[in-house]
């Protein structure tokens, strides 16, 4: 293939709506040079460069974009960059654990939960937040917290995975 090259140079004077925002992402302070109306999702994906957080709907309906802000699960596609301050701790799937061994991630591997996997970053972030809030969630808790959409159909394994993560954590 032909080596990719920049087709044009940026024309100056176009950045009138662009501003510098500082974010704390996965424990790192990063500067994002974007329109403050940009959803956090796109700041994370296109500016910070972390693509584990997915775009699925853009209207907070599917949960593929779920990240934690100060431990709370939020849908980053419907959270504006301007609404997040640098004192708030944003955690994405890449920062959930240092080595991919959060109890939810371990349980997900043990049970082979993902199918296509595109929704699973959001699923895992939602499940991890649930466990943080309720260490021993009931099925009703899981029903209420896990509203993410999966089209492949992993729901029953997501439920089993959450229960397995509880067992793994309490036994290990």
């Amino acid at each position: 293939m032909v080596p990719p090259s920049r087709g044009e140079q940026r024309v100056s004077g176009r950045e009138h709506a662009i501003a510098m925002t500082r974010l704390n992402v996965n424990g790192r302070l990063v500067e994002v040079n974007a329109d403050p109306d940009t959803p956090l999702l796109w700041a994370i994906r296109d500016h910070v460069g972390l693509t584990g957080t997915k775009y699925g709907c853009g209207i907070a309906a599917c949960g593929a974009c779920t990240v934690h802000i100060d431990g709370q699960p939020i849908r980053s596609c419907a959270t504006l960059l301007s609404a997040v301050s640098e004192t708030q701790k944003i955690v994405t799937i890449e920062g959930l654990s240092p080595d991919g061994n959060h109890p939810i991630q371990r349980a997900w591997r043990e049970l082979d939960v993902p199918q296509c996997g595109f929704c699973q970053s959001g699923m895992i972030m939602a499940a991890a937040a649930l466990l943080a809030e309720k260490p021993q969630p009931t099925d009703a808790d899981i029903d209420e917290a896990m509203t993410n959409i999966c089209r492949c159909g992993t729901y029953n394994r997501v439920r089993a995975g959450i229960h397995a993560a509880v067992r793994g954590r309490t036994s290990g």
Binding site: T51, E94, G100, Q105, R109, P114, Q120
Partner: peptide, 11 residues
């Protein structure tokens, strides 16, 4: 499976 639990899989 593993890459689908860490966000590492590039779609």
């Amino acid at each position: 499976t593993a890459a689908k639990t860490t966000g590492a899989l590039v779609y």
